[in-house]
């Protein structure tokens, strides 16, 4: 097959790796540069990894459901074994039960569960919540494992990945795809940062099979099982591009949410607490922008793993038209 051109992908987070994969699949010769030395060191590595287009509809526009609906199929095809198709459970403390009705009114693709239904799905939560919503079609993955898996697969396919580099060692490129996320704030018009803070807890006393969202009027939060007794708790949303360490207040709020879900989290070990910057446009939807010789793919907000496959395909199609 004739090579339609050589492409340099800038950025090795979820957007860059997905773009590299799709461009390679469309016949381009791809190289990728990432300034971080390790896979998963950027914002993508702090993601929840929830492939939850139905739940996200609570606050996101229709496009997120449309573009994200097939994300779990994409990840499953590219990285067999990484995607856990176990749905999402949404619960609320008794005094905030009204929040469940509100969540249900904004979303689709769920069924109502009673106490027994919740216990059947998540025995650890038996007796803790009267009502819940179950989004059966949703899935999740471990972001760092998926990023490592995807970079390994790309390497095996002959894509050259340069981590810890801002420029490729050699070569001329016909096209550039810029997926540098929050690093492009200031360079891409309209791009802003939304700070997110997360933490990881380790305990053998709680077992969860799927992401659990805890609704609360002030701090809606989620807990995603990572296997091996580890749980990711996220995430704050603060309109700021400050990437400094997690604040005491945010740490307290995240821990409070975990404790409210199950008191045994009070005895868990805190093994990680970090902050990152989500890149976002003013409508919180990602964009594929062609600007001269460069295609920018950015603005994933809280939907990197959910929407990167769809935008990567868009970028590859745009690149094909550009190359033709």
């Amino acid at each position: 097959m004739r090579t339609p051109g050589r492409v340099l992908v800038r950025g090795g987070g979820v957007a860059g790796l997905c773009a590299a994969h799709e461009l390679h699949a469309h016949g381009f010769a791809v190289e990728l540069v990432e300034r971080q030395a390790e896979v998963g060191a950027g914002a993508s590595g702090l993601a929840g990894g929830m492939l939850a287009p139905y739940c996200e509809r609570e606050s996101a526009p229709e496009d997120v459901l449309r573009l994200g609906r097939h994300a779990s199929d994409w990840w499953n095809a590219v990285l067999p074994g990484h995607v856990v198709c176990a749905g999402t459970l949404v619960v609320a403390p008794p005094r905030d039960a009204g929040e469940l009705a509100r969540f249900a009114a904004r979303t689709e693709g769920y069924e109502w569960l009673d106490e027994a239904g919740i216990a059947a799905l998540e025995p650890s939560l038996e007796g803790r919540f009267r009502k819940g919503l179950f989004f059966r079609e949703e899935a999740h993955l471990d972001p760092r494992a998926a990023l490592l898996g995807l970079s390994g697969r790309l390497k095996a396919q002959g894509v050259r990945l340069h981590f810890g580099a801002t420029e490729p060692p050699t070569g001329r490129f016909d096209h550039v795809v810029d997926c540098t996320g929050a690093a492009a704030i200031g360079a891409v018009p309209g791009l802003r940062g939304v700070r997110g803070e997360m933490l990881c807890l380790e305990t053998a006393e709680v077992a969860l099979a799927r992401p659990v969202r805890l609704l609360h009027p002030r701090h809606p939060l989620y807990i995603v099982p990572r296997g091996g007794g580890r749980f990711m708790v996220g995430a704050t949303m603060i309109e700021s591009d400050d990437a400094g360490p997690i604040s005491a207040r945010s740490l307290m709020e995240l821990l409070n949410a975990a404790y409210a879900l199950h008191p045994a989290f009070g005895e868990a070990r805190l093994i990680e607490a970090r902050a990152g910057i989500r890149p976002a446009f003013d409508d919180n939807l990602p964009r594929v922008i062609r600007d001269g010789g460069t295609i920018f793919v950015n603005g994933f907000y809280r939907h990197g793993f959910l929407l990167a496959p769809a935008t990567a395909r868009q970028a590859a199609h745009l690149m094909q038209r550009k190359a033709a």
Partner: peptide
């Protein structure tokens, strides 16, 4: 208070 993490004022949201 809420939108100034780490005492860093503003950024894009305040501009908006």
């Amino acid at each position: 208070r809420r939108e100034t993490a780490g005492g860093k004022a503003g950024g894009a949201f305040f501009a908006l």
